[in-house]
Design a protein around this nucleic acid. Structure first.
Lengths: 353, 353
DNA sequence: GTGAAAGCGCTAACAT
DNA sequence: ATGTTAGCGCTTTCAC
C-alpha cells in the first residue's frame, strides 16, 4: 500500500507536487504531471481518504440517510446517487435511520455525520423540528429526495398533482366509487407524501361533487401485505369501490392480489392505479403514474457535488416529472365483458400518455 | 466541532488520557474517566474517524459490496449488517459493483486498498480469479454472504439442499411434470446460486427416474418480469408442467402472474414453490423455503467485528438454516375442484414445517 | 513550477 | 494513572 511519499521519491519530486499533479491542480508542468500519473499507476497508489479528509477537509464521501433499503423507491434513489458519486470518486455511506428516536438523535446531534461525510442526502425521513433546524444550518450541502423541508434543497414529485392525476384518470373512465389506499407510514418516516396524495384524491372527488364514504379509504402503510388487507376489507363492502387509487405501486400490487383472491376481474370489476412505475408494474399490468427515482437520486448527487465544487445552486424544490402509463389494470366503468379475457390479451403493453 | 484537545484542556488532562478514557481502555481512574465523559458530552465531542483511522488504523467502517440494492435478499442483508455495525459504532459503506468489468477492477482495488474500511462484506458477486486471490490475501477481515469462495469465510444456504427440498415437496405432492425457472444472472453476478439450485432440481427428478424436457426449464434472471415471460412460454406448451420450482420467490411471483394471466388456477392447475420467503410471499400465498438474509447479514457483521476485535474465527462456510413454509400455491396433483375456490379461503395462512 | 514545513485530530509507544 | 512525543498520509501556505 504505497503512500504519496512513495510516489514522490519514485519520481524524484516532493509530495506536494504529487498531490497537485494527481488532483489536476494548476502550476504543474505537463511533463511532471504525466510522470507522476504514470508512477502512481505503476505503484498502484490510491490516496487515503482519511489523510486527505483530515488535512484538506474533503472526505470524498456523502452520507445517504434513509429509513430502510427494502423499498423500491429508496433502492432506486440509492443506486442513482451512488452512480454519480462513484464516477466522481466519492463513496456512499449509508445511514439507515431506524425509527428509534434514541438512535436518530445521536446521529443528527453528533457531528458524526459531519466528520465523515462532505454532504448529506436524505430520503423519506419525517424530520423533527429540531432536525429541520439542524438541517437548515448544516455546514454541508444537503438535499432531500421526496418531501421538502423549507430552506433545504429538494427534489420530488408534486404529490398533490400526482394524486389528482391518478384520481382524474379514474374519474375520466367514468368511475365514481373510487377508493384510496394510502400510506400513513411508521413513526419517523415521511408523512406528507401519503397525506398529500390522500388529500389530492379527496379534492379531486370533491371537485366532481363526490364524497367518499369512510370505508373507501384505508391505510396500506406503503407495503404489499398491509395494502392487500386494506383492499380486501374495502372490496368486501356491499358498496365496494369500482376503482382504487393506491398511493404507491407496491400498495397497488396488494390491491391486485386482493382482487384476484376475491375473484374480481381487473379491470372489468375493478380498476387499479398506482404511483411509481415499479420495476414489476409492467408484469402486473398496472396502470400507474411513472416517476424516476434513479434520476432523482442522480440529480441530488449532482447537486451536492456542485455545491461542494463551489458552483452556486439556488435553494429550491425541484419538481420531478411524472407521466401516466396506461396498462391493463384500468378500464371504463361497466366494461365488464360476459366472459374471461382471452389468454393472449396483451395485458402488459404500456402506453405512455 | 470540538476536538479531543478541547476536551483535554477543558478538564485539565492530556489528550492521551481523554482518548483512553473515552475508549474504555484500562489505566484510567474512575474519577478521571467520568470527568472526561461528562466533558465530552458537555462539549458535544465526537472523535473524528479520519483522525483515528489515520493514526490508529481503525476506521470504524466496513464496506459492503453488492451488485445492486434493489433485490429483496440484498436489501435484507444490508439491513442486518447495518443493524449490528451501527450498534457498535461502525459505519457502513456501500459499494455497488456494477457489472462493468472496467469499473469493477478499479472499485475492487480501491475498496480493498483505500483503507477507508476495516472489513469487507460481499454479496452476490461472482468474483474473478484475480478478485478471489485478492480477497483471500486481503489484509482485512472479509466475509461473503450467499456463495462461497475457498479460503474466505462465508454464510449462505446450501443451495443444493434447498433446491432438492423444493423439488421433493412437489414430488411428494404427486407431481411429475415439474418445471424450473432458474437464474443465470447478469454478467459479474453470482452464478453458482442459480446453477446449484438448477442441478438440485435435475438431480431430484433423476432420483425419481424423471428427466424433464428442455422446455421445462427457463431463465428468469432472478427478477419478476423475466420470470413471468419464462413461465408464460413454459405454461403454453401442450405438455406444460403441473408444478414449477422457481429459484427465488421473486421469480415465483412472476410465475404466479403468468398463471393468472393464462387463467390457470393455483394450485389446482399449477403448483408453484419458491425460495426465500420474501416479505410479500405471504400476500401471494406462496409456498416457499424460508431463509433469513437479515440474520445472515447480522452474522457476517458480527464475524468481521469479532475478527477486528482479535477474537479468532475459523475460516469456514456457515450453512444458513431454511425451512419449508407451505401456503396455498402448492397442492396435490389432480386436486382440481370443479369450481373456483371459496372467496374466503385462507390462502395466506403459513404453515411452518 | 516546485519544495519545505506546518499542521489536520487522533493513537501509540515510551516515560514518569 | 497520567503526560510526552512521535507520527499516520495527506493538503496547504509560503518560500524560492
Amino acid at each position: 500500500m504505497s503512500s504519496i511519499h512513495d510516489v514522490a521519491t519514485y519520481c524524484g519530486v516532493s509530495t506536494a507536487t504529487v498531490s497537485r499533479a494527481l488532483r489536476g491542480l494548476p502550476n504543474v508542468s505537463r511533463q511532471t504531471r504525466e510522470l507522476v500519473q504514470a508512477a502512481a499507476a505503476e505503484l498502484g497508489y490510491v490516496p487515503s481518504p482519511s489523510a486527505s479528509g483530515l488535512s484538506g477537509g474533503r472526505h470524498r464521501a456523502v452520507a445517504i440517510v434513509i429509513p430502510s433499503t427494502a423499498r423500491w423507491f429508496y433502492s432506486k434513489v440509492i443506486e442513482g446517487v451512488d452512480s454519480v458519486l462513484r464516477r466522481e470518486g466519492y463513496d456512499t455511506f449509508l445511514v439507515i435511520l431506524a425509527a428509534t428516536l434514541n438512535d436518530r438523535e445521536r446521529l443528527f446531534h453528533n457531528a458524526l455525520l459531519r466528520k465523515r461525510a462532505d454532504a448529506l442526502i436524505a430520503l423519506g425521513i419525517d424530520f423533527t423540528d429540531e432536525e429541520r433546524r439542524e438541517l437548515r444550518s448544516v455546514q454541508m450541502p444537503a438535499m432531500i429526495v421526496g418531501g421538502a423541508v423549507r430552506g433545504v434543497r429538494s427534489v420530488g414529485l408534486d404529490d398533490g398533482a400526482v394524486g389528482r392525476a391518478a384520481t382524474e384518470h379514474l374519474l375520466g373512465l367514468g368511475h365514481t366509487r373510487i377508493g384510496h389506499i394510502g400510506g400513513h407510514t411508521e413513526y419517523g418516516m415521511q408523512h406528507s407524501v401519503g397525506e398529500d396524495r390522500e388529500s389530492a384524491w379527496r379534492n379531486a372527488l370533491a371537485a366532481h361533487g363526490l364524497q367518499p364514504p369512510p370505508h373507501h379509504h384505508a391505510d396500506g402503510a406503503f407495503v404489499v401485505p398491509q395494502a392487500k388487507v386494506a383492499a380486501r376489507s374495502m372490496l368486501r363492502s356491499p358498496d365496494r369501490p369500482t376503482a382504487i387509487f393506491a398511493g404507491s405501486d407496491e400498495m397497488a400490487f396488494g390491491a391486485l392480489l386482493a382482487a384476484t383472491e376475491l375473484g374480481l376481474r381487473v379491470p372489468e370489476d375493478l380498476s387499479v392505479i398506482g404511483i411509481d412505475d415499479h420495476d414489476w408494474s409492467d408484469a402486473f399490468g398496472l396502470t400507474t403514474l411513472r416517476q424516476q427515482p434513479f434520476e432523482q437520486g442522480r440529480l441530488a448527487a449532482r447537486t451536492v457535488l456542485d455545491e461542494l465544487n463551489g458552483i452556486p445552486v439556488p435553494v429550491r424544490t425541484t419538481r420531478a416529472p411524472f407521466e401516466l402509463v396506461v396498462r391493463a389494470s384500468t378500464g371504463p366503468l361497466g366494461s365488464a365483458p360476459a366472459q374471461a379475457p382471452a389468454q393472449d390479451a396483451p395485458r402488459s403493453t404500456p402506453t405512455a400518455v
